[in-house]
Design a protein around this nucleic acid. Structure first.
Length: 458
RNA sequence: GGCCCUAUCGUCUAACGGUUAGGACAGCGCCCUUUCACGGCGUAAAUCAGGGUUCGAUUCCCUGUAGGGUCACCA
């Protein structure tokens, strides 16, 4: 069995695209699964469009995802080799220099290099789709280099694959139609033919190839910045076009290396589904320890949205810590978690401003006097609790009061629970009052309830 | 348009000739909770169409249809 060598050949002409990530992931998984190696190759032959910053982003993004490689090269640094082989092909009569009008400026003449196309029918085996046959006559003598010293993509890619002894070319389905062209170059060069596997494309909601104009974010870094975890991206991407053969859906990168097989790769394109990604991300967020969860939140406090939660060390931070289970319940991304800390959960860090009408008007049957009485007994009961009371014991201690009110026919538990929760949160929607008390502490809770009582009196 | 690829719930997918066509996300309903969220339970939802082959087709073949990809001196 020959050694497996795959390639990750991004073109640094744009941001780190989801499709690039998925293809890279599958190449990585296949190679690692078979104990082979991975070659990273920056395909920067188009010097006008290639940018170092894009290359940097792609490398940073792949690293963030946990995808690694064993060797690194740039096509722009391999031009001597292309020149050498171009000369060889021309000398052998397998390619020729052609003088023709420039594409962009018909008044100028340029000398491009064309491959002499034997014009045969080519059949190759795709590991995912089976045998595929193309008639190459329609390709004609296609251009393989702008000049003897300026190779074009197809030529450079074939030379590099040959020199790197690539065993498997795993790429997107959009490369399928290019395969016969590359095989023609291989045959002219006398290079061995690697195995091919063309992955189904990632589609947008209109079922067209996912692109920047699709309306969805296509840069992996945007997802990172929004607070998606690399584990979630990898897990979701792997399941987009691949399945383990059974119902399992949770996979770490290590598990994927273990399980991955091209036989379970789908043939048809898959739509990008943000909702599903969100759900996968929430899953991995919940898997984080509370400490790690806070690190993710904390690393973004430059983002002023949740500064309030972190600004005062001590009390505030201990409340952040206690709020983590709440955030794990409610947030699907860290961006959402941060928004909650400065929005619906802000009451954990700031005293709310209360509205008399909302305090008593939840049920039409309620009257201020009753609400006041209820809050007063609640306040008394609260005072007897330890300052670091748990949500469970707060509930135990206070629920009997709510039940007593209910027994008196004063609007049920809600007649008590609603004003309590509102007094603590100042919001129509919030976590339950007992959880709030456990996070705020007895002292702060009593203070807020008494403030509510004062409003009812005033 | 030529060439190529593809076709199971709305979406991601399982079922490699015989299943009540399974799971997940989203949806809906109920429960929990007089808030919100979480959670639990349940429900609806698919084999593109027509021909074959076969005792039997989601599965194999053909045709049609639909969708996608590709046709550069971009990668």
């Amino acid at each position: 069995m020959s050694t497996v060598v795959t390639r990750i050949p991004p073109s640094p002409t744009g941001r780190f695209h989801i499709g690039t990530a998925r293809t890279a992931l599958f190449n990585y998984l296949f190679a690692r699964h078979h104990g082979g190696s991975v070659v990273f190759r920056s395909e920067d032959t188009d010097r006008a469009r290639s940018k170092k910053e894009y290359e940097d982003e792609i490398i940073a993004g792949l690293t963030w995802l946990g995808i690694s490689w064993d060797s690194f090269s740039r096509q722009s640094e391999n031009t001597d080799r292309y020149h050498e082989l171009l000369e060889k092909l021309v000398a052998e009569g397998k390619a020729y220099v052609s003088s023709e009008p420039a594409k962009d400026d018909q008044t100028k003449t340029v000398e491009v290099v064309r491959l002499k196309n034997p014009g045969a029918s080519i059949t190759f085996t795709d590991l995912i789709r089976g045998d595929i046959t193309f008639d190459t006559t329609e390709l004609g003598d296609f251009v393989i280099a702008r000049s003897m010293t300026d190779a074009l993509y197809h030529f450079a890619a074939v030379v590099d694959d040959m020199d790197a002894k690539i065993s498997h070319v795993i790429r997107g389905e959009d490369g399928l139609s290019n395969t016969p062209r590359q095989i023609l170059i291989q045959e002219a060069l006398g290079a061995p033919r690697p195995a091919y596997a063309h992955l189904p494309l990632i589609l947008d909601d209109k079922r067209a190839k996912l692109s920047k104009r699709s309306g969805t974010a296509t840069s992996v870094m945007d997802y990172r910045d929004e607070g998606f975890l690399p584990e979630a991206i990898v897990n979701y991407l792997a399941l987009l076009g691949w399945n383990p053969g059974d119902d399992r859906e949770e996979f770490s990168l290590e598990q994927l290396v273990e399980e991955f097989s091209l036989e379970h790769v789908q043939k048809s394109g898959a739509s990008w589904n943000r909702d599903k990604l969100l759900s996968v991300n929430q899953h991995w967020m919940r898997r984080l320890s509370d400490e790690d969860f806070i690190k993710h939140l904390d690393s973004a406090t430059a983002d002023t949205r949740c500064q309030n939660a972190f600004q005062t060390p001590g009390v505030q931070q201990s409340r952040v810590h206690k709020a983590v289970p709440l955030l794990k319940d409610r947030a699907q991304t860290f961006a959402e978690a941060r928004e909650m800390l400065s929005g619906e959960l802000l009451c954990l860090f700031e005293k709310p401003s209360l509205d008399l009408a909302k305090l008593v008007a939840k049920e039409p049957t309620e009257r201020p006097g009753m609400t006041k009485t209820a809050l007063e007994s609640l306040s008394e009961a609260l005072k007897s609790l330890p300052d670091d009371v748990s949500a469970e014991s707060a509930k135990e201690a206070l629920m009997s009061l709510a039940d007593a009110e209910e027994a008196k026919g004063k609007g049920g538990r809600g007649g008590t629970l609603w004003p309590l929760r509102y007094a603590l949160s100042g919001q129509e929607r919030s976590p339950d009052p007992f959880t709030l008390i456990s996070i705020l502490g007895r002292e702060e809770a009593v203070s807020r309830v008494e403030k509510a009582i004062a409003i009812l009196e005033g």
